[in-house]
Write a protein that binds this DNA or RNA. Sequence first.
RNA 1: GGUUCCAUAGCUCAGUUGGAUAGAGCAACUGCCUUCUAAGCAGUAGGUCAUUGGUUCGAAUCCAAUUGGAAUCACCA
Length: 596
Amino acid sequence: MIFEKQIKEAVLNIVSCLYSCELCEDSLQIQKTKKDFTGDFTVVVFPFVRYSKKSPDATAEEIGENLMKTVPFIKDYNVIKGFLNLSIHDETWLNYFNNIRSKELLLNINEQDQSPIVVEYSSPNTNKPLHLGHVRNNLLGDAVCNILQANKYNVIRVNLVNDRGIHICKSMLAWIKSGKEETPESSGLKGDKLVGKYYVEFDRLYKQEINQLESQGLSKEQAEKQAPVLLEAQQMLQKWEEGDEEIRALWAKMNAWVYEGFDKTYKQMGIRFDKIYYESNTYLLGKEIVEEGLNKNIFYKHEDGSIRVNLENEGLDEKVLLRSDGTSVYITQDLGTATLRANEFNPQKMIYIVGNEQNYHFDVLKLILDKKLGYTWGETIYHLSYGMVELPSGKMKSREGTVVDADDLMEDMIAIAKENTEKLGKTDNFTTTQLDHLSSMIGIGALKYFILKVDPKKNMLFNPEESIDLNGNTAPFIQYTHARIRSLLRKAEAQEININDSVCVSLIPEQEKELLRTLYEYPSVVKQAGTELSPALIANYTYELVKAYNHFYQDTPILREENKELRIYRLQLSLYTADIIKHAMKLLGIDVPEQM
RNA sequence: GGUUCCAUAGCUCAGUUGGAUAGAGCAACUGCCUUCUAAGCAGUAGGUCAUUGGUUCGAAUCCAAUUGGAAUCACCA
C-alpha cells in the first residue's frame, strides 16, 4: 500500500513528462511480481504504448530507467514481454518490517464515517431449532460485522426474531393437544427442541386428518383446507391478534423456552447481538407507511380490498402490501422495521444477511422505499444474499428428517476434534477443562472456517464427513501452525533470545521476502474484505499465509541457526505471522490456541 | 414462461479493478519423524476454465447468444 502508492505517483509523473499525456490513475496498475520472475512489484506498461509510440519493451525500459533515478528505494528493474518488474532494496523492506512490528502499521485504516452500519442476521423463527442454514447466516453475519469493525466502522448487530404467526400457533396447538404439560425441565429437552418437537407433531396430526378426510371422499385440496387442526390453528392466530390472555400467556411461555434454547446455541457458536427486535412488536408498523403511500396515490386499493403496488414499470410484478382483511403481510412488516431502524440509528448502511431465496423480496423492498416512497435512505439497504447449504443427499427437508441440527452438528465437531487431539497425544498434560476448551476451539473453528471460506453467494455442499476432516484448507491446520509458532517463541524466550531487538539482516533470503510480502498485503486484504463484505477473502488469504510460512520455515532450523541476526529476524517474522493469523481468524470469529 | 444467481482437476473450492506458464485441499501414487509440534513438508499425476461468438495489445475474468443447474415469480414468513 505504501510502496504501490509511491511507485504509482512516480510512474504517472514519468509518463506524463516523457510522453506528454495525462493518465488517469485507474489505467495504471501496480501488482506484485509473480513468483517465477525476479522483482517485487510489477508495472504493466501496455496501457502507455499508445502514447509512447514505442514497443512495449522499449517503453518499459524507458520507464524503468527513469524510475531508478527518481525513486530511491528501487534497487533494480527488468523487463519481460511488456512487464516492468521492480526490485526494492532489502533495507527498505527491513525498515518497513521493523516499523510494522510496532503494530501501528498493522491496520493502517483511516477513521471512517461514524454513522452506524446496522447489520441484521440470524432472524430465526421460534417454532423450530436452528439448523445448518442458520449456521451459515449467523457465521456470515458475525464475520461481516467483525470485518467492518476492523475497518473502524460503527457496527450495530441486530436480530429480528420472528416470534408470531401461524407456525408458532401450530406448535402451541400440538402442545395443548398432546403435550401433557411437558416442559424443558420435565422432558430434559432444550427449549427450542421441545417446541420444534410439537411443530413436527402438528404436521403429523394434520396429515392424519387430511388422510381421513380424503378417505371420506374429499379432494386433496379440500382436505388440506378443511382439516380441523389447521382451522383451529388459524383461530388461535386470530385470538392471538385480538390479545386473548390465555393464548398470549401460553405463547409467552413457549417462546421463553425457545429463547433459552437459542441463547445456548448462540453462545456455543460464539455470536452475539447488540439489539434484538421481536416481530410481535414491529409487525404493525408498516401499516402506516402503506396508508401514507395510499394517500399519496403511490399505492392503490384493488377491487378485492387489498392494497397493492404496481412495479411493472420496474420490471417486477404487482405486489400485495396489505391483505383485504387489513392484516399485514411479510413485506409490510419489513417496510416498518426498515423505517424504524432508519429513524432510530440514521445509518449509512443497512445490511441484511438473508438467503438468496429472498432476492426478489429485497428487490421489491428497496424499490418501494427508494423509488416509490422516495426515502433518501432507501438506497442504503444492502441485501447480503447467500446460497443454500446442500447435503450430499440433496436438499435439507425438515419433513424428511434430513435437516442438520445446529447443536448436534457443533457437538459432533467438538467430539471429533477431541478424539483427534487425544489420539495425537500432545495434550496429555492438559486438564479436562483445558482439553474441553481446546476441543471446542478446534471443532467450532473447523465448522466456521469450512462454511466461511466459500464465497457467500454460491450454493455450497456440506459433506459432514469431509467437514470434520482436519487436514488441508481447514481451521485446525491454521490453528496448528499458530500453536507451533507460539511454541517456538516460548522456547526462544526460554533460551533468552531477545526478539525485540531491531534487526538489520544484511541480506534477506529471497524466499523469505516472499513471506514478508504476504504479510505486507494483509491490511489491504482486510480493507477489501470490508468493501466486498466477503469473509471468504480473509479465510483464503489466511490459508495462503500459513502455506507460505510452512513452506519457508517448516524445515528451516530457526533456533539452531548460527547467524544470530538471521535467527532473530526469522523469529520476528514468525511472531508477526502468528499475530496476523490470530487477527485474521478473529475476524472470522475463530479462536486460536496457544498450544495444541 | 419472466427475473436473478451459478458452471474452473474425479470430488470440494480459490483465482484481487482484464495481465506473464491456471491454484489449493481431498482421493491416488513416491519420499521424509534421533531434528523448534508429522493435524506437517517435498514430489508425481490429474484442465477444451460448460459451448460459440464478440470487445483488445491481452479474457477463467467484460458483453451477447446457447446449454445445464439453483432460487423466485402467494392475501407464507
